[in-house]
Design a protein around this nucleic acid. Structure first.
Length: 231
DNA sequence: CCGGTGATATCCT
DNA sequence: GGATATCACCGGC
């Protein structure tokens, strides 16, 4: 089975479930089996970093498919994406969670805070840390036998679930329009995030007007509600 | 639940 | 140039 990254993220994302991400470095090799990903569809996707056009940071997303886009967030975390899509587009798939299958000792040493092995790659920043990926790897081209590669699943997962993306504020987080998170049900490495804190009102000094009550709960996502902030 | 932490983008002068 | 708001999050309480 081959894994064609020259397709849009929505098609690639489910095919990445069960795939192996292998990263090699001086200290050795760590490989993870992906259990949770999210699609970002570039220019037409208000949740994507590419939505407002290219910037120095997002340049790798606009480059040809088959490379990494790694960004820094919240002052301390790296998150890794696989750039995909036809040339000239800016699609990418965020690697949200996975199970460490080789290099367990190395992964543990990189993630001393993890108390159980399932926590090594449970969440995008944890996964990147376990793999040893940082901004230095943004724009890195995936190559067989190179520093980083992606191997297609040996067997496709028996079942795949979809739901709204985690932590995407505004229209891009709308569960109805962008159910672009994909995961393998029953996997202990699939991250279950606490709902985020409601955002403070925009205008300082105004008392926080209560949000519309009875907003529809996310339909399709047992046990893992997406954080639903913004607007 | 909360706070840490700093890059990035977007607004301003 | 500077000020401000936002953030594909994590860990510890």
């Amino acid at each position: 089975m081959t894994l064609d990254l020259h397709r849009c993220a929505l098609e690639v994302a489910p095919d990445l479930l069960g795939a192996l991400v292998v990263v090699r470095g001086p200290e050795g090799e760590v490989a993870v089996r992906l259990t949770e990903v999210e699609a970002y569809e570039g220019a037409r996707d208000p949740g994507s970093h590419a939505y407002r056009g290219p910037t120095p940071r997002t340049a790798p997303m606009f480059a040809p498919a088959g490379r990494l886009y790694v960004y820094f967030t919240y002052g301390m975390h790296w998150c890794a994406n696989v750039v995909c899509g036809p040339d000239g587009t800016a699609s990418a798939v965020l690697l949200r969670a996975g199970e460490v299958v080789t290099g367990l000792e190395l992964a543990r040493s990189r993630r001393p805070a993890a108390r159980r092995d399932v926590d090594l790659g449970r969440g995008p920043a944890r996964l990147a840390q376990a793999l040893g990926l940082t901004g230095a790897d943004s724009d890195l081209v995936l190559r067989r036998g190179g520093r980083a590669e992606v191997r297609p699943p040996v067997a496709a997962p028996a079942e795949i679930r979809t739901g709204p993306r985690v932590g995407v504020a505004g229209p891009g987080g709308d569960p109805g329009e962008f159910p672009w998170r994909f995961w393998i049900p029953g996997e202990p490495t699939v991250s279950t995030y606490r709902p985020g804190k409601a955002r403070a009102p925009r205008v300082p000094g105004t008392p926080g007007a209560p949000r519309t009550p009875g907003a529809p709960r996310t339909p399709d996502v047992p046990g893992t509600p997406a954080r639903h902030t913004g607007t």
